[in-house]
Write a protein that binds this DNA or RNA. Structure first.
Lengths: 225, 225
DNA sequence: GACACAGTCAACAGTGTGTCGAGTGGGGAC
DNA sequence: GTCCCCACTCGACACACTGTTGACTGTGTC
């Protein structure tokens, strides 16, 4: 019998469910272990055995819960993306007065979501570039954000608030590309590389760029350097 | 004796060197094999054995020429980066009249270099995100380009051609981040994803963004959508 | 002819992955 | 109570890839 089973049932507060689904706890333990280990080392340097042992189970048992290491990361990714998506949806749906404020809200929300899960952010970048399921899933999210951006740009142009120029979708792709890369280098950098913009300035800087490129005229709330 | 040796000396035009350095040829064969295989599948899916067999040698012999798979990619990367660097240097050093033209030249040069080596571009993205030597080396190049950009922005501001605004270096980071991500998605995309800007438009689009963000006023040579 | 040396590989050791088949324990049917 | 089912668990295996060792080959030099 597993050693982990010996200490858990010690506390007798277990009248919660008719059938004790320890399975869910194991699954959660694997996810927690993954995020913890990801904070220490790269995804490729974490073996399935590490994940399994960290969760107090054997390697074959790991496969009972997840099909692969990537599937674990994919689950972690879903959580972060959901947080970011919610922030974006709230910002764009809010009653905020100016477009600049809405944009700042959305940008901030996205950055907070990823900042709070730096380790996962880094692993996503790694998994994305390696192709496979992670790539597909991340592309899906990016496409969604590009769609939202392009639609917003077109709406602003339609009501005369933003001037015509580059095709709205191309502009949206560039803006989101910039965002993502800056985000990855800010929060995902292996030790905050030479390419990172200081964290306290990053949202303002990106916001300024977005406003310039969409509205041309610039509210430019340039923070004091 | 290796089977590959049987067909090469057939042509008797070999009075070139006193000591026939077949070693260099083997090394080149490994690099060629790597670029060829990289066009078919991802770096992680190419084993050292694949590289060795492709070059007509055994796996231990591979280690005589390279210390690891990453070292091969690193060598390939040097070549592409050198091409891109040269293009940038020429563009910035040329006698071109307008800044816009110089910028277009540099952008085009970089994109041509990576377009001509799509497979390597993709592998760089993969290696970069995985950390290690490739990450270090690529960061070095990026930093160099950011430095050049920041210096150029400051020079333009000093002579009154560009308005003040965001710190020059932050702007340079954002511009280069945008470039890199768009470049990777345009040429590195696994089958040209939904996020790619059409190849014929990509340089013009990026150029427009650069000019907007640096000069604020916009020459905007927007291509007909 | 003996020596150096670049180049080559069979074979080994180590590590990681994914799978199979044989358990085990607890809840529901009877 | 007993039996069985099923979620759950893991020892042990087969396989793939990596990196190293040590012995070997051919060629050119003194």
């Amino acid at each position: 019998m597993p050693t982990a089973a010996a200490d858990r049932p010690r506390r007798c507060r277990r009248p919660r469910q008719p059938s004790p689904p320890t399975g869910d706890e194991r699954r959660a333990a694997i996810l927690e272990t993954a995020e913890r280990l990801l904070a220490e080392r790269r995804l490729r340097d974490i073996s399935i055995d590490d994940l399994a042992r960290g969760a107090g189970i054997s390697r074959p048992t790991f496969y009972f819960y997840f099909g692969s290491k990537d599937e674990v990361l994919l689950t972690l990714l879903e959580g972060v993306v959901a947080e970011a998506d919610q922030a974006v949806a709230e910002a764009f749906g809010s009653l905020a007065t100016s477009p600049a404020e809405r944009l700042r809200s959305a940008l901030t929300g996205v950055f907070v979501a990823f900042r709070d899960h730096r380790a996962i952010t880094l692993a996503i970048a790694e998994g994305y570039a390696a192709g496979g399921e992670i790539h597909t899933r991340w592309t899906q999210s990016m496409t969604h954000w590009v769609d939202i951006t392009a639609a917003a740009v077109e709406a602003e142009r339609a009501r005369g608030a933003a001037p015509d120029g580059l095709p709205a979708r191309d502009l949206a792709v560039m803006l989101n590309a910039m965002n993502e890369r800056v985000l990855m280098d800010t929060y995902g950098a292996f030790g905050g590389g030479a390419l990172a913009i200081p964290e306290e300035r990053v949202v303002d800087s990106l916001l300024a760029a977005w406003l310039h490129l969409i509205y041309r005229s610039a509210p430019l709330p340039a923070p004091a350097p």
